[in-house]
């Protein structure tokens, strides 16, 4: 084992190799299974990066789809409209052009994250949520009005460059980044900011900077996920990145337990696969999501995927009046 790699980084390298290997054998896979698998990977990236902002740092953002849109459009323009100019630079090699486009998409999204974050991170709770929602909508409206990227009709004929390697390579890097960022003395600061901002400041933590780092890193990976998404679906339009898309990601984070690595990854997998399985009930999906949110918040706000399952359902049901009657001890 090379001395400059530690254990966690070895895991990352192994995951990248595995992604490459999976890609190598991917033509044996059914194309439908393949696209669902890639959907899972993209959603893990989205959920993990949002978890950094909403979960670990405690800054409830509702604009993640907006950053995703920025990355999707940027990378699609680079591989589509600008391909003629860029291809000679990369010698026509897609495997060079595509990651370049993804990273640039991520960087532009990160800049957008910084621009959104700088003014709004002074706000808290409800207000931050609604302002990020507003920014997400503004980003959408801007894309709707830019004819160069197709306006409200969107962009089509995006080359299908996304494959198992790029998607799961990105997934591995995202998961590693969020994990490594948190698991250090510096990184514990994110959690401290989430717990109590005033006290974090009093301990010498620049809370604004922490929130900015979370926002920018989160937006960066949302942007890359957007790029992967665009080159998987070959088509994007502004309304695909609306409030509902943000909510979808938020639900993954909440279901997994805000500020939990594994829980959020598991719930991203679960929800993506469930969505596919329940495709014929597509109309009910958002109804189920919304009911899930309400019930979770009342019964199990720490998320479903949090181990151990300390509290039996009964403990929570008692909070409701018909059950409260049952729970009441008989007085003699």
């Amino acid at each position: 084992m090379p001395s400059w790699l530690n254990r966690s980084q070895l895991v990352l390298v192994a995951a990248l190799l595995a992604a490459g290997l999976a890609q190598f054998f991917s033509n044996h896979l059914d194309s439908y299974v393949l696209s669902v698998a890639m959907g899972v990977g993209i959603n893990i990236v989205l959920a993990s990066s949002l978890n950094l902002i909403n979960g670990f740092t405690g800054q409830f953002s509702l604009g993640h789809a907006g950053f995703m849109a920025v990355g999707a459009y940027t990378s699609a323009v680079l591989t589509g409209k600008l391909a003629a100019q860029l291809n000679p630079i990369f010698g026509g090699h897609v495997y060079l052009l595509f990651p370049f486009a993804l990273v640039v998409g991520g960087l532009v999204a990160a800049v957008a994250g910084g621009l959104v974050g700088a003014p709004s991170l002074r706000l808290k709770g409800d207000y931050l949520a609604i302002v990020t929602l507003g920014f997400g909508e503004i980003i959408k409206v801007i894309f709707q009005n830019v004819e160069y990227v197709g306006g409200a009709k969107g962009l089509n004929a995006i080359p299908d460059y996304s494959n198992l390697f790029w998607v799961f390579g990105t997934t591995a890097i995202t998961v590693y980044t969020v994990w490594a960022l948190l698991n250090s003395t510096y990184g514990r600061g994110f959690l401290a900011v989430a717990d109590d901002e005033i006290s974090a400041e009093a301990m010498g933590l620049n809370t604004t900077r922490y929130k900015m780092v979370a926002f920018v890193v989160g937006a960066f990976f949302a942007g890359i996920a957007g790029g992967l998404f665009a080159h998987l679906n070959n088509y994007i339009n502004p309304s695909g990145f609306d409030f509902n898309k943000s909510i979808e990601i938020v639900v993954m984070v909440i279901l997994g337990g805000m500020g939990r690595h594994t829980g959020v990854i598991l719930s991203a997998i679960l929800l993506t696969v469930l969505t596919e399985l329940l495709r014929q009930f597509g109309d009910y999906r958002m109804v189920i999501y919304s009911l899930l949110l309400i019930v979770l918040m009342i019964l199990r706000p720490q998320g479903l995927m949090v181990w151990p399952f300390k509290n039996p359902l009964w403990f929570y049901l008692k909070a409701y009046w018909p059950f409260r009657m049952l729970a009441r001890r008989p007085t003699s």
């Binding site: 003395t185 514990r188 959690l191 989430a194 717990d195 109590d196 301990m203 500020g259």
Partner: peptide, 23 residues
């Protein structure tokens, strides 16, 4: 206190000002 952090992490975080590391 940082209620969800462990006792250890509560103290560890407070060394922040003297950290050489960053993200």
């Amino acid at each position: 206190l940082f209620g969800s952090l462990t006792v250890f992490d509560n103290v560890r975080v407070a060394f922040h000002l003297h950290l050489r590391q960053g993200p």
